[in-house]
Design a protein around this nucleic acid. Sequence first.
DNA 1: TCTGAGCGC
Length: 106
Amino acid sequence: MDIFVGSIPFKFKEKDLEALFTPFGEVVSVKIIIDKATRQNKGFGFVEMKERKDGLSAIQALNGSDQLGRAIVVSEAKKDKEGEPAFKKPRQWNKGKKKNNVITWG
DNA sequence: TCTGAGCGC
């Protein structure tokens, strides 16, 4: 499932989100939205977890929790519906080269 | 290299 994470500190990185969600289940991918022009952290991101139940428990546990002094918002991503693909086109993380705002895993 | 509701290139 895809999880929306908002109000995260601007200093947050993908690794930080991965470290937050990993204890609740297997994290498939992590992404933090960064402005394409200025490369600035937009303050929200997404975490994809393998098991939906783990994602839900992670949401309940991490939503509103303090991270680096800020209460983050954790909720299920809008486009992620049960039985439907989260997006029209598949996103691949371990393909091609690494970009500025994307960390390739593995 | 600022910012603070919002949903991803």
